[in-house]
Design a protein around this nucleic acid. Sequence first.
DNA 1: CTGAAAGCGCTTACAG
DNA 2: CTGAAAGCGCTTACAG
Lengths: 338, 338
Amino acid sequence: MVTIGDVASAAGVSRSTASYALSGKRTISPEVRAKVLLAVESLGYTPNAGARALATSQTRVLALLGQFLPDEFAPAMLQYILGVTNRARELGYDTLLVSEDDGAAALKRISDSRMVDGFVLLNVAEHDTRLPLLRSAPQPGALVGLPGSPDGLDVFDLDFDATGSFMVDTLHDLGHRELILVSQPEHVVERGGAYVWRLRDGAKRRADELGVRIHTFFGSSSQPQIGADLHRFLDAHPDATGLLLNNEAAAAALPSVLVARGMTSPEDLSVIGRYSDDFARTFSLPFSAVDSAAEELGRRAVEQLVHRIEGGHAATPAHLELIAPVLDDRGSIAAPRP
Amino acid sequence: MVTIGDVASAAGVSRSTASYALSGKRTISPEVRAKVLLAVESLGYTPNAGARALATSQTRVLALLGQFLPDEFAPAMLQYILGVTNRARELGYDTLLVSEDDGAAALKRISDSRMVDGFVLLNVAEHDTRLPLLRSAPQPGALVGLPGSPDGLDVFDLDFDATGSFMVDTLHDLGHRELILVSQPEHVVERGGAYVWRLRDGAKRRADELGVRIHTFFGSSSQPQIGADLHRFLDAHPDATGLLLNNEAAAAALPSVLVARGMTSPEDLSVIGRYSDDFARTFSLPFSAVDSAAEELGRRAVEQLVHRIEGGHAATPAHLELIAPVLDDRGSIAAPRP
DNA sequence: CTGAAAGCGCTTACAG
DNA sequence: CTGAAAGCGCTTACAG
């Protein structure tokens, strides 16, 4: 392989001069600089990443810790992942994708071995076992998902509380007075999926304030159970005129459920979901929905992380950013039948 | 950070002895070994990845080069990715996920900087611009997707030709004599998506042999166009009794198209798709389908790659593995109406 | 403006 | 069975 020594020889300068000419960390005469660059070009020199990491303690790599839990909606993960990898690359970083079940062990292993400059944690739970390790790690981290105690950490998430409130508000404005909310399965809640209860609590509170009745349910995260669930919920509350979905599988199953019941949306039922626009397009989901903002969250997390790696030191205080709900209107909400 | 020097001091031995005690590359007396392990434990020592990479020229990292093309089905990618990352971890490797548009440039950059020990290429095209670079790279690679000239490279893919042939066979056995095949959009073909024509050609050949009429179309990869496409294809050939889908968006759109036409499957139309089981479950697609084998292909590619990295040298000859089609029967195929 | 040298934290021949 | 030393390819004070 071609090393900086080869470049230096070819350019007729010392290795340090070659290095400085490339990094620009001290002034180099134009002629010398040109000779070095020429040598780099003709030899096809690229610095050895391991050697550079050893010398500088910087890897230019970020770790992305996914949590691919059973009964959670895996395909949605790709949006977050691409947001992270693409933005990282734009900022000059590569991304190590970690999918191990034991995220805490993975974080420790990777942190201790100094493979990366920082961590992005996806799908952060209420009491996430990765957080204590992250706090004591020498590398900074950014979270996608709001944990119970975010103190000192940079956190990015959709404002699920405001999302629940917004959904109720929107339907109330149109005249709806009785709603059904279908959330993720209960065990998602049990393992700390705070977004489930944050959206639900926001919806309930707002419903209380407005005098709207709301019935909340946990739905299965896969077929065919979620289809049966939806029938059951709709049977139980035949007077409900609006349906809120915080469950991707429910959104995917709903069209055929509606057909089976001889219902159409929004005529017989107004529907608001919470999922990504990309998801909606791919699967032709015809429901208005609050966008998950997956890619944006991934990008924002990386930006903050890189900021902290490169400049921030302990300078910047912890950053908590909850993205406000934005509705993609696909025409599935309207005033209820008189 | 704690280094092997700290471990050596704590154990009262030299750094080389500490290193050998950990690697097992030469015999160490049980007592010394115990002292070293104790020191490692109490100090919490983990080797520095950069230093090790520099010394050994091995990173224990694989690069995964995705190609996230517009108009291709992104969510399906996650299956391949998880197959790769999980199997890599089992074999002791971490995975660098690369999503840059210019895969060739990325490959060169990562190869030259010696960041990884090998490459997995996803979504390989007929004339993939990454292949020349991979061939001249010092690190080995494994492909998921069959290119026009696979010479010398390890390749894993679904046997799309056999899949097309199998689909026709299956419906012919049930008595079908006129079929429609809906493929990915034509520009997927134009940019070298060989799996499109491999399946189609396999289907056509077998149809010819069996005296079955088959009408082949390109369909859009997104809504709402693909819905309109499907109506058009079905209108054009009202006597066709079987539908073959090599297009995920078509599979997702078909249920509502059938409802709109007042048709049911398999009574009015037998349907066979090609997509992953996971995909079918998540979106409750009720169609029998040949499994994409995404996760398996990812895993197999990694296994072969690691084999080549660790033992194979130039030893093992190139490996070409086309996985035979396996049908997940979801009850959407039957004999045509008499 | 440039060069010689030390050092990052490992591994592994070379000696004993 | 163990230790002292060289070397992997960089960067960056230290000198001039």
